[in-house]
Write a protein that binds this DNA or RNA. Structure first.
Length: 703
DNA sequence: ATTAACGGGCTTTTT
DNA sequence: GCCCGTTAAT
């Protein structure tokens, strides 16, 4: 062993060393939270290259772009040659391979990748054209969910027809599925599921492609293996069949994507495909305080379906976990923000987690009020904004003229008096001629001059933009489009209140495009487009507090963590209360959340929560009762966990009851809306005449 | 006859 | 808050 390798494994524990040194042959690494998983994988990559393996023959697959980026950066830090290795997400890899082998599948390599909302609108069109009953047509969201479900199981339309066991599918699903795929093929487009499915199709049926890819990669590593679905398993096994140097890493206790087709038992059954596989368990946690690890272990041990494994740590006990029970969700947000202000953790080392995306709104408002910079991971993505999606649709049409989805999105934006009827006739023409909407639109000058006239400005804009595509930086091409269609004017008229914000987004888009052109002088618009569909903006900006769902939190770590909405109905979610399996997954979600915190953790709940319609009362989460008392402070009576206390609290002594007019020394006059217990103390929720709704201690009030 | 604008009903988690 | 069905405007 030379000095480089000695340095690489210095201060690794024995299990980690074993994992880094077992380079050849199949290997399963069970890696508990904070057990140094990424360090192990990246050291393996560095070591392989150091041993003379061509970096390009190393493939590492992850689920999130963030994981891929981090892995790549850390591998490069250990061995600069790792820059040549392919480290990216399943979806990006598949997209890359599919562009390379598109013609083998009858696609053009500039195909469009449809995101979920695009896919939904195609599905909507297909259902409307179908011969389904009206009542079946009404349940569109069902179809979208079923379709995604079917695809993550790797079922093609022909499998649906054969498989009579799938008889709980909605009416006419097989027909819808078939025409949906035909429609997508006509548009030279693929949805997220297709990226995986089409790759499988190639590997199954195309020996040439299979051999090329098997020879291309000598070492394969898969992160978060507990989250793989059957299609991804098939992909990994097919690619790894040649050299059998397949290393998978995961933790069944962190399996939180079963609703997306992930099968945690994949990691337990890895040796079914690779019978000679070795196993390594990483159980020492280097991340969290002992209190946090104790709490996490105590919670997860209530799950019955799991491999035996126990996380331990040598870290100090640290501060107790804190439970905070506030009167409503607004106060909950307020409390978190005040807490962040009062403590001195670095903003980029502070994170706030919640179960549903909608919970972020109040929190954002509270953070904005206090001028705390924050960033949201995941949805509400920049590229999901209407104005950005519209402009991206214009760009998509430049690259892929068959993209009917993009066409339909923007043909009438800004309004050009092209509504449902015009679209119908256009679709009829297109179908008769077997052309895309854009192609047929361009050829209407004789057949339908009236419609053609209405389409003119739209078509002209695209033509002008296309002419500039070769010679101008991409941002300038977008500016030309903006100018041609007077898009800013349209936005100002349609969204007067959000005009400035949307302008900034548009400007940012132009800048992003120009930056891309500068960074990749030979970069094509299609490369940029693929990136924005598959890559989310998710880097950790310094000076910013991070907000995200519990699902997004996996794989991250922060000194200071808050988990909000720790209530039965949110955590566990109300839709998961029915089955034991679903409840266990919710518990794993809590486990993931807890183990993100390095130093201090706060769980918050609200007595009542203002939702889409009025207030709902949710009891504190049942999972609180599973946390040992010595790890946590601030709990109210145990009896209330998982059960709602309906009794109204009234302060008889002071004559304070609901709907009572009161006076507060700071806020003046108001009316009591409700009286609640916070931290065992009575507080009144008061609607003040001049200050709106506030929660104040009862003893500050005068009748 | 068509298109544009307005108000009502739901909201889990994501590549 | 977002998507959809209804009404008002052309």
């Amino acid at each position: 062993m030379d000095t480089y390798q000695q340095e690489l494994i210095r201060d690794l524990n024995p299990a980690q060393k074993l994992a880094v040194e077992s380079l050849d042959g199949p290997l399963v690494i069970f890696a508990g939270a904070g057990s140094g998983k990424t360090r192990v994988i990246t050291s393996r990559i560095a070591s392989l290259i150091h041993n003379g393996v061509d970096p390009r023959k190393i493939l590492a697959l992850t689920f999130t772009n963030r994981a891929a980026t981090e892995m790549k950066q850390r591998a490069i830090a250990l061995n600069p040659k790792a820059v040549g290795s392919q480290i990216s997400t399943f979806h990006s890899c598949c997209a890359r391979w599919l562009r390379e082998f598109a013609d083998e599948l009858g696609f053009n390599s500039n195909f469009t990748i449809l995101d979920d909302s695009d896919s939904k609108s195609v599905l909507k069109g297909v259902i409307q054209k179908s011969s389904l009953s009206e009542s079946a047509k009404a349940s569109l969201p069902d179809y979208k969910q079923v379709l995604s479900n079917i695809k993550v199981q790797g079922l093609f339309p022909k499998d649906i027809l054969k498989n009579k066991m799938l008889d709980d599918l909605p009416e006419g699903f097989d027909e819808i599925y078939k025409s949906y795929q035909v429609q997508l093929a006509n548009c030279n487009s693929m949805d997220f599921g297709d990226l995986m499915m089409n790759m499988i199709l190639l590997l199954r049926n195309n020996v040439k492609v299979k051999q090329i890819l098997q020879n291309r990669y000598a070492y394969i590593m898969v992160d978060e293996y507990q989250d793989t679905n059957s299609v991804q398993i098939e992909l990994v096994t097919a690619l790894g069949q040649g050299t059998r140097n397949v290393c998978v890493v995961g933790d069944d206790d962190q399996s939180i994507y079963s609703w997306r087709g992930a099968k945690a038992r994949n990691i337990l059954e890895f040796d079914r495909c690779f019978s000679e596989a070795k196993t390594v368990k990483l159980e020492q946690n280097y991340r969290c305080t002992a209190h946090i690890i104790d709490a996490a272990n105590a919670v997860i041990k209530n799950n019955q379906i799991r491999a035996s494994k126990k996380l331990w740590t040598e870290n100090p006990q640290g501060e107790k976990i804190e439970f905070v029970y506030e009167s409503d969700n607004e106060m909950e947000a307020h409390h978190v923000v005040e807490s962040i202000k009062s403590e001195n953790y670095m903003p980029e080392q502070t994170a706030i987690f919640y179960r549903t995306n909608s919970q972020s709104r109040l929190l954002e408002e509270a953070l904005l009020r206090e001028n705390i910079n924050y960033q949201i991971y995941g949805t509400t993505r920049f590229y999901d904004r209407v104005e950005v999606k519209d402009l991206v649709a214009y760009l998509r049409l430049l690259v892929n003229p068959l993209d009917d989805v993009a066409f339909l999105r923007v043909v009438n934006k800004p309004a050009r008096k092209i509504g449902g009827k015009s679209i119908q006739t256009l679709q009829k023409y297109a179908e008769e001629a077997s052309k895309s909407l854009l192609q047929i639109a361009n050829s209407l000058s004789e057949t339908d001059p009236k419609l053609f006239h209405k389409l003119m400005p739209f078509l002209a804009c695209l033509n002008i933009a296309k002419k500039n595509l070769e010679r101008e930086p991409l941002g300038n091409v977008l500016s030309i489009i903006l100018d041609q269609i007077s898009y800013l004017k349209y936005v100002e008229k349609k969204y007067p209140n959000q005009f400035q914000e949307k302008c900034e987004n548009i400007h940012e888009l132009v800048v992003a495009l120009n930056e891309f052109s500068t960074a990749n002088p030979n970069g094509k618009l299609e490369d940029w487009l693929q990136n924005i569909t598959l890559v989310r903006g998710d880097n950790n900006i310094s000076g910013y507090v991070s907000l995200m769902t519990l699902h997004m939190a996996k794989g991250l770590e922060f000194d200071r963590v808050y988990i909000m909405g720790f209530e039965d109905g949110l955590i566990p979610h109300k839709n998961s209360l029915e089955s034991k399996q679903q409840l266990e997954e919710e518990r794993r979600l809590v486990y993931v959340g807890i183990t993100r915190a390095r130093r201090k953790l706060t769980l918050t709940a609200a007595y009542r929560r203002l939702g889409y319609q009025g207030y709902v009362n949710l009891p504190p989460s049942r999972f609180l009762a599973e946390i040992p008392k010595e790890c946590i402070k601030g709990l109210v009576e145990e009896a209330s966990y998982g059960k709602l206390d309906e009794t109204e609290v009234v302060d008889e002594e002071n004559g304070i009851t609901r709907h009572q007019s009161v006076y507060h020394p700071t806020y003046g006059y108001g009316m009591i809306d409700n009286i609640v217990v916070v931290h065992g103390k009575q507080k009144a929720v008061v609607e003040f005449d001049d200050f709106g709704k506030r929660t104040v201690p009862v003893h500050h009030l005068r009748v």
